[in-house]
Amino acid sequence: MGLFTKRYHPPGTTPGTLTAVTRTSEQRPLRISLLDYDEDRITELPDASLADCISHTSDSKASWIHVQGTPEPELLHALGEAFGLHGLALEDVLNSGQRPKAEVYDGQFFVIMGRPVWRDGELSMEQVSLFLLERLVISFHQGEGDPFEPIRRRLRGASNGGFNQRTADYLYYALIDVVIDEGFPLLEILGERIEDLEDELLENPGQGTLNDIHRLKRELLLLRRMLWPHREVLNVLLREEDRLIQPGIKLYLRDCYDHTIHIMELLEAYRDMAASMLDVYLSSVSNRLNENMRILTVIATTFMPLTFIAGLYGMNFDRASPWNMPELGWRYGYPAVVTVMVVVMIGMVGYFRRKDWL
């Protein structure tokens, strides 16, 4: 699937319809984990079944169901029936590649976020979908690896900063914060690439440099397209007055919003630098062409009088007339002409140096 495309249902399909997508190489093995916690305990099922999730009931502070991999329509339909998940939201989960957004449904929040990933020298975006319900968070991620393992480690740790005393809205914030903060190390990688390209531009720019600059600009454009809407997502969560998100949690969401501002400022600065590098490359190529043309012009200009002298004495006139090149019969005629040519060449080179043309 391309960087700027996503899978849609055929025209005329009823909104909220869960239709199986065509199998591609992007399909990931499915794994479901279930986690419960409160002040005194944490219960974790790393390989839970769909039945475990549907039958799960708990009076804990929060429960968390995470679906890792590509979900089937049947699984999404069962989860939707069990927890009252909105059909439009489930359709967006199934059809990955959505633009980041936040939706407020009756008794639930639904958020789609773009997770930037740098893998094998390539930038890609993975969709993360998050539901917040009463004391329950459901997350979906179809990419490689589990992006939320740091949250699990915090919960398992003996000193987790009171995480296990928090309600589900704090867990919801923590998952959002993990996705947003993954933009910083990726921007650091892009910043190092920009520095390398700047050095290459100054030393020896070539066609490969131009290709790298265009590739960098496309990657920055993709990042902007997927990370810019994160601000809108957080604005929706901050503005919405709902008991699912307590007032105290909005302080943490505002911190996330500050992170998105910082990321976008860095991203815009990098885009400006990439645009200026293209101008520098074109200017460098033009200057190098001008330098080559200057050297060739100096060489051609230096040999013009020498060519004239050689052409003049190459004319085969009869020396019977005193006006027909009498010096051709001189004993030292040839050395004299060569000496004149050397003197003329040295004089022109000296003149060019005084003019700073060499």
Score class of each variant (00 low, 15 high):
residue 1 M to Q: 11
residue 2 G to P: 14
residue 4 F to N: 08
residue 4 F to T: 07
residue 5 T to I: 02
residue 10 P to E: 12
residue 12 G to Y: 12
residue 15 P to A: 01
residue 17 T to R: 15
residue 18 L to M: 02
residue 27 Q to A: 15
residue 32 I to W: 08
residue 36 D to S: 10
residue 36 D to E: 15
residue 43 T to D: 10
residue 46 P to C: 04
residue 49 S to V: 04
residue 52 D to T: 04
residue 53 C to P: 06
residue 59 D to Y: 10
residue 60 S to Q: 03
residue 68 Q to F: 03
residue 71 P to C: 03
residue 75 L to G: 00
residue 80 G to I: 08
residue 85 L to D: 05
residue 93 V to E: 08
residue 96 S to L: 11
residue 99 R to W: 04
residue 99 R to L: 05
residue 100 P to G: 02
residue 125 M to V: 15
residue 128 V to S: 10
residue 128 V to I: 15
residue 140 F to P: 01
residue 142 Q to A: 13
residue 142 Q to H: 13
residue 143 G to I: 09
residue 151 I to N: 09
residue 153 R to F: 03
residue 158 A to H: 12
residue 164 N to D: 13
residue 165 Q to Y: 00
residue 169 D to P: 02
residue 174 A to G: 09
residue 175 L to T: 04
residue 177 D to L: 04
residue 178 V to R: 14
residue 182 E to H: 15
residue 183 G to T: 15
residue 189 I to M: 09
residue 190 L to T: 00
residue 193 R to L: 10
residue 195 E to G: 01
residue 195 E to I: 12
residue 196 D to L: 10
residue 197 L to I: 15
residue 208 G to S: 13
residue 210 L to A: 10
residue 211 N to V: 14
residue 213 I to P: 04
residue 219 E to Q: 15
residue 221 L to S: 10
residue 225 R to Y: 08
residue 227 L to G: 04
residue 232 E to L: 07
residue 233 V to P: 03
residue 235 N to S: 11
residue 235 N to Q: 11
residue 236 V to K: 14
residue 242 D to E: 06
residue 243 R to D: 13
residue 243 R to M: 07
residue 247 P to A: 07
residue 248 G to K: 13
residue 250 K to H: 09
residue 250 K to W: 11
residue 252 Y to M: 01
residue 253 L to A: 03
residue 253 L to N: 04
residue 254 R to L: 03
residue 254 R to K: 14
residue 254 R to Q: 13
residue 258 D to G: 05
residue 260 T to P: 01
residue 260 T to C: 14
residue 273 M to K: 08
residue 287 N to H: 13
residue 289 L to E: 05
residue 298 V to I: 15
residue 300 A to G: 11
residue 301 T to N: 07
residue 301 T to D: 03
residue 302 T to Y: 01
residue 302 T to D: 00
residue 306 L to H: 09
residue 312 L to A: 06
residue 318 D to F: 03
residue 319 R to Y: 12
residue 319 R to T: 12
residue 320 A to N: 14
residue 321 S to P: 00
residue 323 W to F: 13
residue 323 W to M: 05
residue 324 N to Q: 10
residue 324 N to F: 14
residue 328 L to M: 14
residue 330 W to T: 07
residue 331 R to M: 09
residue 332 Y to R: 15
residue 334 Y to H: 07
residue 335 P to R: 11
residue 339 T to K: 01
residue 341 M to L: 11
residue 343 V to P: 00
residue 345 M to D: 03
residue 351 Y to H: 13
residue 352 F to L: 08
residue 354 R to I: 12
